[in-house]
């Protein structure tokens, strides 16, 4: 049972990590980015590329992935957001759906449909605490997620660039008046989110396999975590991710593994009905 919970928590961390980058973009441009799951997936695939095709070490592959992902972030902005920034939000959302198809099928064309794996930074070691045994990689996931979580809170509240990003996210017009270069801040957000995706991808790849469909799977789960936590709250997102991860593992092992995902979706629908603003979110009034 404890083992299952630990494993659930580590999966939940991946959901939350994906959610972080996703919410970053959402706050900056006011539109959900459906391609973000594929972006996380590419973070892993770039690492796989460096290791498998270039023969690089894991550390170098990670650096390569971060750099390549920064490029992907720029591409995301210039191709699927910037030209439409003055159009209705729906346009941007649909463009992100297009980008997600483009990326998913590019992965399929480059790496094929078969699942691939990359090794963890901590190898396959197991940790024994009392009777509980779990992979060291799960511990790594906890540490990295905690680090990113705290780092993110610090970055947005304490650093000047973080505050500029925050100001842009809150009110673009206001930010412009304050002399912030909004377009550059948005570009930076896309790049930052893509680099975060690289980390998420490297944490995810050893846990599951990388395959072209994993992006869709992970984005939907991150979404559910966000809805549970309430849009806009990092704390909520973290809690939502952990809750979803643990629930899934427990449902799969004790109730039904076939309908595990159906149950996740039902949780989503239930939260939307009962508590549309999530557990940590604030209700926003519409203006006339």
């Amino acid at each position: 049972m404890i083992q299952e919970i630990v494993s659930g928590l580590s999966i939940g961390c991946i959901y939350a990590m994906t959610g972080f980058g996703f919410v970053l973009i959402y706050n900056a441009v006011g539109a959900v980015n459906f391609a973000y799951g594929e972006i996380v997936m590419f973070g892993g695939y770039f690492g796989y590329l460096a290791i498998q095709s270039f023969g690089w070490s894991l550390g170098l592959a990670f650096l390569f992935s971060i750099l390549a992902m920064a490029g992907l972030g720029i591409f995301n902005d210039y191709f699927a957001y910037f030209p439409m920034r003055h159009r209705p939000v729906v346009t941007v959302i649909i463009a992100s759906i297009g980008l997600s198809i483009l990326l998913r099928n590019s992965a399929l064309a480059i790496w094929g449909p078969d699942p691939v794996k990359i090794k963890s930074f901590v190898g396959d070691q197991l940790v024994h605490i009392g009777n509980v045994v779990f992979p060291l990689h799960q511990l790594l996931i906890f540490i990295v997620t905690a680090f990113i979580f705290v780092g993110q809170v610090f970055f947005f509240s304490r650093t000047s660039i973080g505050r500029k990003l925050e100001a842009t996210a809150q009110d673009q017009e206001m930010a412009k008046l304050m002399g912030i270069k909004v377009n550059r801040m948005i570009l930076l957000t896309f790049v930052l989110a893509a680099c975060l995706a690289s980390i998420a991808g490297f944490l995810l790849a050893p846990l599951w396999f990388l395959e072209p469909d994993v992006g869709l799977y992970i984005i939907v789960k991150a979404f559910i975590a966000i809805v549970i936590g309430g849009f806009g709250s990092v704390y909520g997102l973290m809690a939502g991710g952990l809750f979803l991860g643990v629930t899934e593992v427990l449902v799969a092992s004790h109730l039904t593994s076939e309908y595990k995902d159906v149950i996740s979706f039902l949780i989503l629908v239930t939260v939307l009905i009962v508590l549309p603003q999530g557990f940590f979110g604030e209700k926003v009034a519409e203006k006339v």
Partner: peptide, 15 residues
């Protein structure tokens, strides 16, 4: 490559 073109096509239509 069809699906890749297809995805790019959706974005281009939106633009």
């Amino acid at each position: 490559y069809y699906m890749i073109i297809y995805g790019a096509g959706i974005v281009l239509i939106m633009i």
